[in-house]
Design a protein around this nucleic acid. Structure first.
Lengths: 202, 202
DNA sequence: CCTACCGATCGGTAGG
DNA sequence: CCTACCGATCGGTAGG
């Protein structure tokens, strides 16, 4: 019981400096863009000078990559949970769409930056993120193809439907705000209804 | 018949230098982003050195603004033409959606840059573009509200439907390519069908 | 339309 | 964790 984790100060910085820095970077990237954000900006946001950040992160580029990698990975998990929650294809689709919408509303900054700053990634990082995004896209598309195969949907192209659905979710991150006239739940349900109609279900 | 327009060389540069420069800038902005594109890059693309561009354009920022202003203005005109083409509200909506889709497919670079680089605009320019975009949004929303008032649609929120529809169109600019497996017409018709179902028409 | 160049910015390192 | 600073980049101007 004698002094475990001696460096942990109370109050400020709940988790660790790295997370604080990534969080501050995210807010700035979302607001001003990756290129227009300087390491000094990020430092200021966490009460440090720019160069001091390099004790906690390896580079500005790595900061962007870490943010995006966690973001795609998390939304993929949400989708997997939605699919695993039932055997009914139509319900799987509805829940996958709701998860997609919830993610883009609740974590709008990550989703927004993850989309807008794709081309700010270095080649290798870009390819890794794109591959994960494609896997995510394939997850929804597979469900739609299954629904089509079972004769439960009336849309003409699984590919176009998938892209349309993902894009309308991605768009949410660009205009949604907490304290909006819609709650995240209302958004998820309404988009769920719209999508099921769009697919010609029911 | 003696030498009219003596400066006009044959071949290269069909219209005028300004248009060539804006076109080259657009391609580079779409590909590398506004910030990562240098005046020297743009110059090279039109066989000039960077500083020489300033004889034809006033600044890099102005290049971006000019591209965006023309883009929103044109898509607004397309929408107006769609609305003017018939008195049937449902058909007005379908045609407005088709116009929206066609624009984002055919002029994908402008649409893409116009969306992704919004925050690269200076304050005054930003506000002017945003105002035009809002007017465009209102155009579609008004149609949907009318359809709702006439009992022809079953969607719950004109606002959410409008945003969802616009966002799925905007997304097209991010993945569509000529020589794609879908033609622009097929895209417009399929999205038209999807949207009308989504709105609960018919 | 070009070369030369200014002034400012910025990511990252050195060295404590 | 900071100050000092390097090296590179870039928009725009001067002056022909």
């Amino acid at each position: 019981m004698d002094a475990p984790r001696p460096r942990q100060r109370a109050g400020r910085s709940r988790v660790n400096r790295g997370d604080d820095i990534r969080e501050a970077a995210l807010v700035l990237f979302a607001d001003k863009g990756y290129n227009a954000t300087t390491m000094e900006d990020i430092g200021t946001a966490v009460n440090l000078r720019g160069p001091s950040l390099y004790k906690h992160v390896s580079s500005k580029q790595d900061l962007l990559f870490a943010i995006m990698a966690k973001s795609v990975s998390d939304v993929q998990q949400d989708q997997a949970a939605a699919v695993a929650s039932t055997d009914d294809v139509l319900l799987q689709i509805r829940r996958a769409v709701e998860a997609h919408v919830r993610f883009h509303a609740r974590r709008r900054r990550e989703a927004f930056v993850g989309h807008r700053e794709l081309r700010s990634l270095d080649k290798g990082n870009y390819e890794r993120i794109i591959a994960q995004r494609r896997a995510y896209e394939l997850g929804l598309r597979t469900l739609i193809e299954r629904g089509l195969a079972e004769g439960l949907l009336r849309t003409r192209s699984a590919k176009l439907s998938t892209l349309a659905i993902l894009d309308m979710g991605i768009g949410i991150a660009g205009w949604f705000h907490e304290r909006h006239e819609f709650s995240v739940d209302e958004l998820a349900w309404e988009y769920g209804d719209m999508v099921m109609r769009q697919l010609g279900a029911g």
